[in-house]
Design a binder for these strands. Structure first.
Lengths: 128, 128, 128, 128
DNA sequence: GTGGTCTAGACCACC
DNA sequence: GTGGTCTAGACCACT
């Protein structure tokens, strides 16, 4: 379910956070569904439980899950909404930047090339 | 050369700054070429010379032109580079945001629709 | 028994609820004693019976009284306990906040001044 | 400067966070002054560097300091303001609670006893 | 030297 | 079983 690149320069715990967020956003977890336990997921990913602990702590800090000591970790009720809201804010920023670039005199062709290039990069490496 | 919308909510001097920057970026002014004097440009645009003074002062603050008392105002040597650099930074931000949105799980189709919409808005109103 | 301020920004029915709770907490009503009927109390207070109906409904929702159709409204058995429990929870919160403020470095003198000021305000306006 | 109780049920890193905040609030650190390095403070406190790392990470998350890799950690410009603002908010909450308790019928004497008790507890254990 | 990350292994409290 | 914390020790990148 999650894929870790141990040789990436981006920390493992951040990779886990990003992919868990992605799964939550896409609805792979039902609301209040239990997440895999620290130990089991650490084992299956082949990473140290502490690394996973750190990733989960970050998700919790962001309000995406809550931990119940002795019971497990659960996706919080409004996790998906939080993530969709965040996406919407970023989309607004993106539109704002495009407007500024166009206003600064960037030609439509130039902007299009820029965006196409970005899409190739992003969707190319995006095989999760 | 410049078009002012007196009824816009964006201050006149900012309109002037933005359009001057645009012209400089597009190479409409040669390096170190003299800019139109405050009085003549104010007259031709039908605005108060103080408004133009403020616009020029802002351009100067941004390092895009320099004023030589008794002689006039001149586009600074590296004005175009500064503007291109600024555009490049914004382009980087844009790519960064696109990457984040894709990483967050936004589908290619969804992103494309978002961008097309933005282009229509921006290039539509862009008749300067 | 109850005092209504028709010009206050706080809704009349909330004033009634607050004062009824206060009386229940202080033991002015015996357990399971009948409350004044909607019509008689509305008349004596000079308010609309619907307003009183809303206040009583709120008290009922909070488990402080029960209505027996055809017979009247009665203070519920554990009404006083509920209110004392609520007060106790708020007292705990208050202690918790004081501890946090002291832990954050607030000096005893500073805290004392804060509290004295609050008491003056609260007990000053408290002439019901 | 900091005192750690290794046998307390409150985690060591939280003790460190609380005491560092206290020192910052009281002005023991000048703005943008360098904090003791992870290693040296860990050594002087007799705790593991990772524990201190966690404490510092939390301070950073709260915007009270910033880390410059390879250079050190520095108290952020508005750290003291953030802490004073936080205290002010808690003071407001405290006043609000006192008002509610009084409104609910708590007598002045009762409230006073409550507060005195809290002060004894808090200032008693407060020997940092 | 600094901070940042990861691993391995231990202990506790809760259920 | 679960999460939470702490320790010890290692490695990396940056300055």
């Amino acid at each position: 379910m999650l894929e870790i690149d141990k040789f990436s320069r981006v920390p493992i715990y951040e990779q886990i956070v990003a992919q868990m967020e992605r799964h939550i956003r896409l609805g792979a977890f039902l609301q209040e569904e239990a997440l895999p336990s620290v130990r089991t997921l650490a084992l299956s990913l082949g990473v140290n439980p502490n690394t996973l602990q750190k990733a989960y702590a970050e998700l919790e800090r962001r309000g995406l899950c809550i931990s119940v000591p002795g019971s497990g970790r659960f996706v919080s009720r409004n996790a998906q909404d939080l993530l969709l809201l965040r996406s919407r804010e970023k989309a607004d920023e993106l539109l704002c930047l495009m407007r500024e670039l166009i206003e600064a005199g960037m030609q439509q062709q130039e902007l299009k090339a820029l965006i196409d290039e970005a899409e190739k990069q992003a969707f190319g490496k995006d095989k999760i």
